[in-house]
C-alpha cells in the first residue's frame, strides 16, 4: 500500500512534466530559430520573397545616399527606413496587429505611415511558416532605439534630417514567443537584442 501510494504520488507529476517538456521542446526550437533569423535578416539581410528582389540587404549595409542625404530616411520607434549599399530603399517595421516584423523595398518617402500597409511586404523571417509572435520588450516602448556617436540615446527623430544625420547606431530589441510564452503552458519565449553601427551615415 505504501509503495503504491508513493508511486501514485510521484509518477503522475513526473509524467506530466515530461509531457510538458516534450510539447515545449519543438516550440522552444521554433522560437529560437525565428528569433535568431529575424535578428539576422534585419541586421544582415537575406534572400527574399519580394517580387523582383531576390536579396534584401540589412541595416549593416546602410549607406549614405548622397552628400546631403543620409543613409537613414526614416527613424521611428517601430520602423526604420534606409538606403542599402546595393541601392535598395528598405523599410523594416514591427506590425503590432499581426505581431510580426515586416519589410519591403520601396522608394524612400517620409513621412510614412508606420506601421506601413502590409501589401507588397513580407514577414520576417521570410521563410517563416510557424506562428511565432514578435512583441516589444515589456520594459521598452519601441523596437528600435537610436544613438549618436557619443553613445547617447537620441529620441526617434522620424523624418527630421538633423536628427537622422546624428544617428551612428541602432539598437534592435524584441521578444519572440509562441502563445503565452509561459513554460507552464508548454510555450516558449526569447528576448533578443542586438545593435548595428551605421558606418557611413
Amino acid at each position: 500500500m505504501a509503495v503504491s501510494g508513493l508511486l501514485a504520488m510521484t509518477i503522475p507529476p513526473l509524467v506530466f512534466h515530461g509531457a510538458k517538456a516534450m510539447a515545449f521542446l519543438p516550440k522552444a526550437m521554433a522560437v529560437n530559430h525565428a528569433a535568431t533569423e529575424i535578428m539576422y535578416q534585419m541586421t544582415e539581410g537575406s534572400f527574399s520573397t519580394l517580387a523582383g528582389q531576390p536579396m534584401v540587404q540589412g541595416l549593416r549595409f546602410a549607406l549614405r545616399r548622397s552628400s546631403s542625404a543620409p543613409a537613414l530616411w526614416l527613424a521611428a520607434d517601430d520602423c526604420v527606413g534606409f538606403r542599402a549599399s546595393g541601392g535598395q530603399d528598405v523599410l523594416i517595421w514591427w506590425d503590432s496587429s499581426t505581431e510580426t516584423m515586416r519589410r519591403r523595398v520601396s522608394p524612400a518617402a517620409c513621412p510614412m505611415a508606420c506601421p506601413a500597409p502590409s501589401a507588397g511586404s513580407e514577414a520576417l523571417p521570410y521563410e517563416a511558416l510557424g506562428s511565432v509572435r514578435v512583441l516589444q520588450i515589456p520594459a521598452a516602448t519601441s523596437v528600435f532605439r537610436y544613438y549618436n556617436q557619443s553613445g547617447v540615446a537620441v529620441g526617434a527623430p522620424g523624418c527630421s534630417l538633423g536628427g537622422i544625420t546624428s544617428i551612428r547606431r541602432i539598437d534592435v530589441g524584441f521578444v519572440a514567443q509562441s502563445g503565452s510564452g509561459q513554460f507552464d503552458s508548454a510555450q516558449a519565449q526569447q528576448t533578443m537584442t542586438s545593435s548595428v553601427a551605421i558606418r557611413v551615415p
Binding site: N32, A35, T36, M39, Y147, Q149, S150, G151, R168, R169, D171, Q190, T191, M192, T193, S194, S195, V196, A197, I198, R199
Partner: peptide
C-alpha cells in the same frame, strides 16, 4: 543566440563610438 547578440550589440557600440 541571446548572448551572441548581446556581445554583437556591445561590439557595435564600441565600434560606433567616434
Amino acid at each position: 543566440s541571446v548572448a551572441m547578440n548581446l556581445a554583437r550589440a556591445e561590439m557595435e557600440r564600441l565600434d560606433s563610438l567616434n
